[in-house]
Design a protein around this nucleic acid. Sequence first.
RNA 1: CGGGGAGUAGCUCAGUCUGGUAGAGCAUCUGCUUUGGGAGCAGAGGGCCGCAGGUUCGAAUCCUGUCUCCCCGACCA
Length: 490
Amino acid sequence: MDAALTPRAKDYSQWYLDVISSAQLADYSPVKGSMVLRPHGYAIWDGMRTDLDRRFKETGHVNAYFPLFIPVSFLSKEAEHVEGFAKECAVVTHHRLRAAVGGGVEPDPASKLEEPLVVRPTSETIIWHMYGQWIQSWRDLPILINQWANVVRWEMKTRPFLRTAEFLWQEGHTAHASRDEAVEEARRMLGVYSDFAREFLAIPVIPGVKSASERFAGAVDTYTIEALMQNGWALQAGTSHFLGQNFAKAFDVTFQDADGSRSHVWATSWGVSTRLVGAVIMVHSDDTGLVLPPTVAPVQVVITPIWKSDAEKESTLAFARKVKEALHPTVRVVLDERDGVKPGAKYFEWERKGVPLRLEIGPRDVANNAVFAASRTGGKKFGMAFEGLLVAVQQKLNDIQTELYDRALARRTEATHRISSYDELKERIEAGGLFLVPWHDDADWEARIKEETRATIRCYPIEGQDEAVGKTCFASGRPATHMAIFARAY
RNA sequence: CGGGGAGUAGCUCAGUCUGGUAGAGCAUCUGCUUUGGGAGCAGAGGGCCGCAGGUUCGAAUCCUGUCUCCCCGACCA
């Protein structure tokens, strides 16, 4: 992949696809909507998973694994849930192939399943079936389980990382003795996601509550973190649901309390997916290619040696290896020793792959006992002494991390508009951005606005709801019940 | 699932209208020369023209079906 990328300003969607292919993050598979995660793309997800898993453990959760196949009858037990997922379920109907008449193979009619199996679009049903067997007493609660898994939702329109038929995610499923405890859990995990987005992904997010029409099928309340992409569209980066007693009732999961009374169990579920990789791409990258925050980057520092003669090659490589040793393993560092690839070509290649910091080492640097550095975030190249290099590199990586977050936050601040009339939304929505408005909660108005502007309520932000008091709805003119953020979204 | 565009070498595409031996550039491999921002020369390898039918003496080219990708909508994380 040598050609320059499509610039963001020319075609944002194409730019996004160009970044992915030129950084070798993912590739298309023969099956529509299915995506191959290539090593560099998978490594990014792997890093996220490691960090998230630590945060889940720190908040008292344990991992488990529930099966891929779910009896189709389970999906129908919770009415809203089946309504939400029925249209996008892959269904397994046979368990065997046979040779077909015209060659090839076909499902063997004799192997038709009594009851078809659904490939999980999410695991609430199978998990609550099992919880029903595990929970009898208040002493069995809470259950705080997370699982790392793949799920399948048969999407019509797909986009790498952002929406694919199969994707990787984690889903936490917790069971509690009281409503308050479950709500607190759902809110706590929303906080974990917010912290993770800010600290690890360098993405500022807005924690909020979904409106009824954007809520997860089967939830009482859906919490979300919303992020802003560079084209002015919003992206739901994670969700946490307070499920009330809906699944406990559907699967008849009750417990006996300390006072001898019997009641249904309270539930939450929460998840983030490989969609986060798409969020990182869209928030940080530029027209040169992928840009990764150092925390996320599988390779944080690349060393590119430069030489002319064989003698120079020897001394340069020797010093470059010494530099690598000084950084490894504290810093994830790669030394690009390839011969026959000119330094400039290496620069472009590693820039496309999003490596935050590059150290160039040529004869001059060997003589100076120093390296010449370039940050992926731009700016002039600068020298770094070999003495104290590890600390200086770590500091520089921290600076890059901060710089990326600050840039993203500045872009969001710039693109957040407080407006007070519907006309203004209609005028300005095409340019993108987040529109913060006083709002009277009303599904019909919401549908109308979506129809007319393609903007949806991303959330009712948790912070600043009191601003709505005394204001009138920007659309209907009735007394405002919420502050709402409208935006176009992926 | 509707409207539009596209599938020919690893990649970007020409060739299709008007049927007649499969092409270019880049990439790859080998060798030599190179190396502080995308190297040069010489040679070599590589394609069931997305897939399946049909028309024809003959199909990348015409017809039918189908799959996949991209864009714009409807639906969803």
